[in-house]
Design a protein around this nucleic acid. Structure first.
Lengths: 216, 216, 216, 216
DNA sequence: CATGAATGAGGATTCATTCAT
DNA sequence: TATGAATGAATCCTCATTCAT
């Protein structure tokens, strides 16, 4: 199926904002990459910033959706180690499958205007809250050893987010094995080395496959 | 001690490049932040890019210097866990003490011209090689459990680098305790949960205090 | 009676050109005000300038028509004071009834291309000639005291034209009384304070009512 | 004495805004008329609108200053006819001496942003209040016959302002005689045909000569 | 050492207009 | 009849940089 022009614009923006940054990308770069004139660009977008906000919002929306879909389908009370495995799996798969989108989200927040920034940061905080809650449950249950839960959460998130900065689908490690490896690392960090027996990670892979259209 | 104008320019650039990005920072922003006119700026720098390269080079140089100074003073053959603790300690302290500098290094590589980029990426690779070697030694010695050493290295580095994105000296955790916590996380990730008995981490703190002028 | 789309376009243009000027009005403003797309606009007009020329031509045509109709139905030789009263009445009523149209005529001549400008200015000169002739007759007849007839004519015209800049139908003075007041002012300026006994002003009101559809 | 670049920019703007309107004047037109590049323009001005506001403010400031200086030096209680003669004289001389400036003030108010417009309109209202007060005094003293003082004021102002639209220093009538003629017209409009015996008009000519640098 | 003046190139965005549908 | 799509040219303004003073 051929792409609509609007989609081509969106993709060009994702690629260029990720590669050269928002301020480093000119309107002409975008137009050229989308295969239209710079004036035509404005039929498919509002401001350059609107484009950025749209990219960020969609990316964060998907991440939130995926996290909630995954956790909501778990038996309650869920095994914290299982839940965290799922979160890590999702996060890693998202960042490996959409490295450009997620890098834009991570790097270009400072390019947003005040109101847009508030909105986007709000979404991001919502997402991080899910992690915080999951970690807190594990600590409360005595499953996780995290003397400074906030620090641990940030360490985990940065580790997983970093995948977007180096992962290549042409690398030796298939994506699901990478995600599994990261889940293992995460549980080790939390002092919970036992392999998660639950099915959350598997469910996470399914959700990821659907949300980010990863593999058939 | 009063600052040189050149130093004021350097610091202004670090702060602004970190906050708004290289392309998002104008020459006039720099001049204003440095307290001089934009024409005078050119007495203390070459191009805007030279300024960026200078910041990156100095930051990486210090990191390399610190890593080498620390590892070189260890007894040979060093304990890999001990060595890795030292690397993590240094890296975390560097990124917490100089978050602006390190964020510039991490985020603005794409703003460099080809030759400058090669140079900077070369320095960065040199530094990462130290980590790779250390991890490899640990694996070879059977101390580390890292089925995919490269993946583990990247996970470790991203986790530690991320400190620059959130650490605040006004937070509850003192810097050395933060570094120790990260060292613990790192060793856990490597399946080497035993606390490092060696003195490398302590030595790392000394080096860090000297290189980045941390605490009296 | 519903308006033609063409009429809606015309009216939108009049309103906007008067309010924001020709150059200050975009083709999209026009389209929005007319309730159609900017592409559809071009089914009802030629260029943007054609629209402007059309507005100006119609406005001046009516003014000329009204002045001629009024003066032509006067007994010859007409009383100059009576004739001037009629001209002032017409001019004031026209500018009060169609302030937007007349302001466009007065303010946007400089926006016209050379050939269009020549045409429009020709029409305007034709109209002003009627005033000049009327004043000259009064001076020749010894009824008007106007040492500098040209200056007086311009003073009169500017005074009357100015009505378009401030008159509001919601003001305290009904339109015909306003016109009568201006006729009085005009005759005073010409040193002919005696109230015009003739019927020209009344005839002027009739013509105005017909040409600009003023009150039943 | 040679003109500074800033003055050249100011004058170019006055001339072009008057001739083609604010929106009809491009930044390149301004630059070319000032003899510099369009980028250099921005060393001597803020926004294009700032330039417009500056022109308007200065013009209105001078008019207000002149009116106050003139009226303040009259004996109290001043003769209303005398005072009005002075106002007319000033207004006419101002509009004849600075036709471009005053036309910009009169025609381009709609090009101002909201806050600027408020300010400028405020100045204009201040000025018109002086006329209103003077007329009211004359009416109260029984010297003026103005059944609708507001209408009369507007008629007077429009008449005098119109001078800027046609006066040429190369015309047959010297400026001071033109002003005297207009004063006569004004008093006739007010039903006060007797020549003003006072010295206000003379004083007005002196003030005008100083404020607008008219004749030695 | 310091800077006001200067600019060509480029920034994002809007312009009036055309045309295939 | 009506309009989405398209665009070259132009909009105002800022960019990094140079240079005479």
């Amino acid at each position: 199926m051929a792409l609509t022009t609007e989609q081509r614009v969106h993709r060009a923006a994702v690629k260029l904002f990720a590669a050269k940054g928002f301020h480093g990308t000119g309107i002409r770069d975008l137009a050229q990459a989308a295969g239209i004139s710079s004036a035509s660009l404005y039929h498919y977008m509002g401001t350059k910033e609107d484009l950025l906000v749209g990219i960020m919002r969609e990316c964060l929306d998907r991440l939130l959706l995926a996290a909630r879909q995954t956790l909501d389908t778990m038996d309650e009370p869920a095994d914290p180690a299982d839940a965290l495995s799922a979160l890590v799996t999702l996060h890693v798969m998202a960042h490996a499958a959409q490295p450009d989108e997620t890098r834009v989200v991570d790097n270009e927040v400072s390019a947003l205007s005040r109101p847009a920034r508030r909105w986007i940061v709000g979404l991001r905080d919502e997402y991080e809250d899910i992690w915080a809650t999951t970690i807190a449950k594990g600590v409360a249950a005595g499953v996780f050893d995290a003397p400074e839960p906030a620090v641990t959460r940030l360490a985990l998130l940065e580790m997983c987010t970093g995948v977007a900065r180096w992962y290549s689908p042409r690398g030796p490690l298939p994506l699901d094995r990478l995600a599994a490896r990261y889940a293992q690392l995460a549980l080790r960090m939390l002092g919970s080395p036992s392999p998660p027996g639950g099915k959350a990670a598997e469910r996470a892979r399914e959700v990821a496959a659907q949300v980010w259209r990863i593999r058939p």
